Deep mutational scan, measured.
Amino acid sequence: MEQATVKWFNAEKGFGFIERENGDDVFVHFSAIQGDGFKSLDEGQAVTFDVEEGQRGPQAANVQKA
């Protein structure tokens, strides 16, 4: 698992990007966020996640709020 920071997340559209420590951004979809209830992330929030290869490149999976 990697630890990184949420760059931005649009709760209405259900997706955003996580900024990795190496500077690369990773796409995150609300369905990858672990937990119950409304799944959203806040800008600047610390998260841990795995990286999977998606249809359009790397994307976050198993996202957990740190």
Results as ranks from 00 to 15, higher is better:
43 E>I: 15
5 T>W: 15
11 A>Y: 11
60 A>V: 03
45 Q>C: 09
45 Q>V: 08
13 K>W: 11
35 G>R: 00
38 F>Y: 12
32 A>E: 06
60 A>R: 00
62 N>P: 00
10 N>D: 11
48 T>K: 09
8 W>G: 02
13 K>A: 08
36 D>S: 13
15 F>E: 02
41 L>V: 04
33 I>P: 01
8 W>L: 03
27 F>I: 03
55 Q>G: 10
36 D>G: 11
14 G>A: 05
29 H>Q: 03
23 G>C: 06
65 K>R: 09
46 A>S: 13
66 A>E: 11
5 T>D: 05
24 D>F: 10
31 S>H: 07
39 K>D: 05
65 K>I: 14
43 E>Q: 15
63 V>W: 00
62 N>I: 04
23 G>F: 06
55 Q>R: 15
19 E>V: 14
34 Q>V: 14
53 E>G: 07
12 E>G: 10
47 V>W: 01
21 E>Y: 11
24 D>N: 12
6 V>R: 00
55 Q>T: 12
34 Q>A: 11
52 E>V: 15
65 K>T: 12
65 K>L: 14
8 W>Y: 06
24 D>M: 12
59 Q>L: 05
22 N>P: 09
2 E>S: 12
39 K>F: 07
40 S>R: 11
22 N>V: 10
45 Q>A: 09
25 D>C: 14
7 K>L: 05
28 V>P: 04
44 G>F: 05
25 D>P: 09
30 F>R: 06
37 G>F: 06
42 D>E: 14
43 E>M: 14
32 A>M: 05
19 E>P: 00
34 Q>E: 09
13 K>L: 13
31 S>K: 06
41 L>H: 00
50 D>H: 15
54 G>D: 05
25 D>T: 12
20 R>P: 03
43 E>T: 15
48 T>S: 10
51 V>Q: 05
16 G>K: 00
66 A>Q: 12
17 F>L: 05
13 K>C: 09
48 T>H: 09
24 D>S: 14
28 V>I: 08
61 A>T: 12
5 T>S: 09
19 E>G: 11
58 P>W: 10
9 F>H: 02
60 A>T: 03
2 E>V: 11
14 G>E: 03
51 V>N: 03
13 K>Q: 08
12 E>N: 12
50 D>T: 15
53 E>F: 14
29 H>F: 08
19 E>L: 14
33 I>N: 00
21 E>N: 10
65 K>A: 11
3 Q>V: 14
52 E>H: 11
58 P>Q: 09
60 A>W: 02
57 G>P: 03
7 K>E: 04
41 L>R: 00
24 D>V: 13
6 V>A: 01
59 Q>G: 03
47 V>T: 04
4 A>M: 03
4 A>E: 04
6 V>I: 10
61 A>N: 08
51 V>A: 04
